[in-house]
Computed example of a mutant assay.
Amino acid sequence: MQISSPIKELAEKAKQVLNKITYLTLATVDQEGHPWNSPVYYGFDENYTFYWSSWKENQHSQNIINNGQVFAVIYDSTAVSGNAFGVYFQGIAEVIEVENEIFNKAIDSIYTKNGKPKRDKKYFLDSGPRRLFRFMPKLFGLM
């Protein structure tokens, strides 16, 4: 099946935004149902699974631990008014609690996106102050 030209163009714009913009805006909900929005510095893999690290006591971290249903937006806010483009995702987020292949993929994708030096793994495990998270989109939209 051949993909139509407008859909190819939208997909290409989405890829450009994902590669250009360094922050994903993450919407979570607390145990009382109150919404919480947080920008997180992210990386992603070839399957468009998104990764970030956050302090384990942040509100959005606690929200994800209690309810993994999230909504995310990556929006090109650098564009001139009326010419911006964004990608919207709904899906499941979770904390990565064990050092494994996913843990290593998260570190690699976060810290190589913009050439940042990698943090030591102990920073994200046990008594370390931060945790690694992954987000697996189920639905997406383009704007």
Rank of each mutant, 00 (worst) to 15 (best):
Q2D: 10
Q2M: 06
Q2V: 09
I3P: 04
I3H: 02
S4T: 04
I7V: 14
L10S: 10
A11E: 07
K13T: 12
K13W: 08
K13D: 10
K13P: 12
A14H: 03
K15R: 14
K15C: 13
K15F: 08
K15I: 13
V17G: 09
L18N: 03
K20T: 15
K20M: 07
I21A: 08
T22M: 11
L24I: 10
L26T: 09
L26K: 12
A27Y: 00
A27G: 07
E32Q: 13
G33H: 09
H34M: 06
P35F: 07
P35Q: 09
W36V: 06
P39N: 11
Y41G: 15
G43M: 01
E46I: 05
E46M: 04
E46Y: 01
N47F: 07
Y48C: 00
T49D: 09
T49H: 11
F50V: 11
F50H: 14
Y51S: 10
S53P: 00
K56W: 04
E57L: 09
E57V: 11
Q59Y: 02
H60Q: 10
H60E: 03
Q62T: 14
Q62E: 15
N63S: 10
I65A: 03
N66W: 01
N67Q: 12
N67I: 11
F71W: 01
F71P: 00
A72H: 00
V73N: 11
S77M: 10
S77W: 07
T78G: 05
T78H: 04
A79L: 12
A79R: 11
V80R: 09
S81Q: 12
A84Q: 13
V87F: 02
V87P: 02
Y88F: 15
F89I: 08
Q90C: 07
G91W: 03
I92E: 14
I92M: 12
I92W: 04
I92T: 14
A93C: 15
A93T: 09
I96Y: 00
I96T: 01
E97W: 00
V98G: 06
V98C: 06
V98N: 14
E99N: 08
E99A: 05
E101L: 11
F103A: 13
N104P: 03
A106K: 03
I107W: 04
I107T: 11
I107Y: 05
D108P: 00
I110C: 13
I110H: 10
T112M: 06
T112C: 07
K113I: 04
K113F: 05
K113C: 04
N114S: 13
G115K: 01
R119D: 15
R119I: 10
K122W: 00
Y123D: 15
S127L: 12
S127W: 05
G128L: 00
P129T: 03
R131P: 11
F133M: 14
R134I: 02
F135W: 07
P137Y: 03
K138Y: 01
K138E: 06
F140Q: 08
G141I: 01
G141P: 02
M143N: 06
